[in-house]
Design a binder for these strands. Structure first.
Length: 704
DNA sequence: AGCACGCCGACT
DNA sequence: GTCGGCGTGCTC
């Protein structure tokens, strides 16, 4: 007899990833990755067989699995390997990682039926009432509906006496979508075609391929030709996108070219829609355009993975468990499946470029195609008494709105004013729970809001320090800029976008003349009637204290350049001689790369080390620092090859009344694994201390 | 974590 | 002898 290691769906048993079940001989054909129904106490649960073991010696009294669940496709061993890897490498709980990839949209309904037996026994009034009512078989719910509250003790007593019987029925319930927005809307009559030579690309498929093509259009044509090639070979194709908007754009591009249906898979689908796509991916040859989660679909004949904008920071999934880097996981999936993977970019990430060129871990194809956009740098140091804009930008805005071209303004500051200061004593109003200035929001009922914990309060009437009552509403946020623009360009439509807007609101974008937004608007910047883009203050991006910010800013600007259809990009900055500004201005990836790599090498930042982060968090600052120092001491003693920094305040270092300190580990040899750090944290932690350690392995940024 | 089961006190 | 509330400990 064999034994199945099963991970249950949405049933967490503390400290346990698996439960063990015996596999009855009748199910001996069941394989690793199969979905099954298993008993748990008196109930039944859905689970996946994660492993199959030979029964050794005396295995306790294992329950047998109930049945195979035929409604959903099995996971397949490459996917199981992938989940194990994601759990292990990033230190995620296996239970949670597995549950993250299980399909929702299917559930078991357990009905408990009760019937009276044809016997005569002594009964109390309550028992008799239940007994009589159960002359016909009923579920517990039906019984309760008929005679009101029934205590479990009454039923227990009746069963003990042998007066009634119970029976369980399992119903598998699947959700079905009403609308089919998850599928391409129009299907082309025949395969489209572009003049593209795939030879160069197809011959370098033995390793991941970094495809460096500046123009988005050109890149997408290559993707299409690859799709056609693999689909016609009978394979499924998976496309990954950093945002839903980009995904849908690519869907539009494909719709005129592909004569078969293709499917979307992303977070805005309903549960039923996502479930449908999940099943299609597991059973048919198909084309799927997905956000990162598509990496965990149960494909059975995947032919190639194509990652668009591989440098995009949205692939870094670190906010919640399971934490992972989408691009790295994509490479792993391709490795486990034994299939090619393309990492496409208009501005490759430093790390992946280094992998390709210096470490020869990736193949590399560059199709040079310089995009010449007019880039204008405004040196803000030379602008005196600026109102909201320098005179050049203002003139250009006027030029554009007059010829009905859209003005797009990128400003990375939410709210109206970014700080409120007392004129008399200089006090800046701070969130009482976080060490972070409160932001004034004009539009949301004129409140002060903390951007870290969501705390809100009314605007101040009196300074808590000096009792003064004059305040400066300082700093320019998107709301303030919007208000200025509305006032100044009265005849034109001004639109502000700051959180990811609903996709149906797109008509608002079409109508607007001037659009102000945070970096969330990036995917919308490809408008046909775009005139100019103004980066309101580039320093807000570059000078965030995080080693990855120059790269992110550079990549973002290059990305925008690759699809922006307007004539000019204006960068307003106080640091016009910064290397990012110079590289953008001179259109030179090489200039940026050399400078950035030199900088990173001198400080042993990635890609010249693996960077790990431990955040120490707790309500007692002293305790947090002490626990952090202890941790550092242990690390330094045990691993002399590591460079360990901190504990240092992790900005903002007070959030929701918890102090946060950061320890950074530069791991040049790549010797540290999440498990090692987890163990050290456990060993180092003083018993009963209220300090929490959050471990992030192989990070690409330090300010999450 | 969720949930059945046993224990116990109140009540018949 | 029953009923219902509550705490505890187990789930393959």
């Amino acid at each position: 007899m064999k034994i199945a290691k099963v991970i249950l769906f949405e049933t967490y048993i503390p400290g346990r990833d698996f439960l063990y079940y015996s596999i009855p001989d009748e199910f001996s054909y069941i394989e690793i990755g199969s979905p099954v129904i298993v008993p748990l106490k008196k109930s039944k649960k859905i689970g996946y067989i994660w492993d199959i073991l030979e029964a050794t010696s005396i295995e306790y009294n294992l329950q047998p699995i109930h049945t195979q669940l035929t409604e959903i496709p099995p996971l397949g061993t490459p996917l199981i390997k992938l989940v194990n890897w994601v759990s292990d490498y990033y230190g995620n709980s296996l239970y949670r990682t597995a549950n993250y990839i299980f399909p929702t949209g299917i559930e078991l309904e357990i009905k408990r039926y009760l019937t009276a037996k044809d016997v005569a026994v002594d009964m109390t009034k309550k028992q008799e009432k239940v007994f009589i009512s159960l002359f016909e078989e009923k579920t517990l719910e039906e019984l309760k509906k008929e005679i009101g509250k029934v205590s479990e003790s009454v039923i227990r007593e009746l069963i003990k006496k042998g007066a009634i019987e119970e029976r369980y029925e399992i119903i598998v319930k699947e959700k079905t979508p009403r609308k089919t927005v998850f599928q391409s809307e129009k299907i082309s009559d025949s395969w489209g075609s572009f003049e593209i030579d795939l030879e160069n690309i197809l011959k370098v498929f033995n390793k991941p391929l970094l495809l460096f093509v500046e123009s988005q259009e050109k890149r997408w044509r290559i993707y299409f030709e690859l799709l056609k090639y693999f689909y016609q070979k009978g394979k499924s194709i998976l496309f990954l996108f950093p945002t839903i908007k980009t995904l849908l754009k690519f869907g539009e591009f494909l719709s005129g070219l592909v004569p078969v249906p293709f499917y979307f898979y992303h977070g805005l689908l309903t549960e039923a829609q996502a479930y449908k796509v999940y099943k299609i991916a597991g059973t048919e040859r198909t084309i799927i355009l997905s956000t990162t989660k598509g990496l965990f679909l149960p494909f059975n004949n995947l032919g190639i993975i194509i990652v668009e904008q591989e440098e995009n920071e949205f692939y870094d999934m670190r906010e919640k468990e399971p934490k992972y880097d989408g691009v790295k996981v994509a490479i792993k999936r391709a490795e486990f499946e034994g299939i090619p993977i393309i990492l496409g970019s208009s501005s490759p990430s430093i790390g992946d470029f280094h992998q390709a060129i210096s470490k020869k871990m990736f193949n590399f194809v560059r199709i040079p195609d310089l995009i010449r956009k007019k880039i204008t740098i405004i040196d803000l140091r030379k602008i005196k008494n600026e109102d909201f804009f320098d005179s050049y930008s203002l003139k250009r805005i006027n030029d554009m709105v007059r010829i009905k071209k859209k003005v797009l303004i990128l400003l990375n500051r939410l709210g109206f004013s970014t700080y409120i200061q007392c004129v008399d004593c200089g006090y800046i109003f701070m969130c009482p729970h976080c060490r972070s200035p409160l932001v004034f929001h004009q539009d949301e009922d004129k409140v002060l809001k903390c951007h870290y914990c969501g705390f809100t309060s009314l605007p101040p009437t009196i300074c808590p320090v000096c009792q003064g009552y004059n305040f400066i509403f300082g700093g320019i946020g998107t709301e303030k800029l919007e208000r200025y623009l509305v006032k100044t360009f009265k005849k034109f439509k001004v639109l502000r976008i700051d959180s990811e807007i609903e996709l149906q609101d797109e008509s608002l974008i079409k109508e607007a003349d001037i659009i102000v937004g945070t970096k969330m608007i990036e995917p919308w910047l490809d408008l046909e009637d775009a005139g100019i883009l103004i980066v309101y203050n580039l320093d807000n991006f570059i000078h965030i204290p995080d080693f990855s910010m120059p790269e992110k800013t550079f990549n973002m600007l290059n990305r925008i350049k690759s699809f922006f259809k307007g004539e000019e990009i204006i960068l307003r900055t106080y640091s016009p001689s910064h290397y990012v500004v110079k590289a953008i201005k001179s259109n030179s990836y090489g200039t940026f790369l050399n400078y950035e790599l030199k900088l990173r090498k001198s400080l042993f930042y990635p890609p010249f080390s693996l960077l790990h982060q431990i955040i120490v968090e707790g309500s007692d600052e002293e305790e947090v620092v002490d626990e952090g120092k202890k941790m550092v001491a242990i690390l330094e003693e045990k691993y002399t090859d590591l460079e360990v920094l901190g504990p240092a305040p992790f900005y903002p270092y007070l959030v929701k009344d918890k102090f946060r300190y950061q320890i950074l580990i530069k791991d040049k040899e790549g010797i540290i694994e999440s498990r090692i750090l987890k163990n050290i944290c456990e060993d180092s932690k003083t018993p009963f201390s209220n300090v929490k350690f959050i471990i992030n392995v192989d990070v690409k940024e330090t300010n999450l």
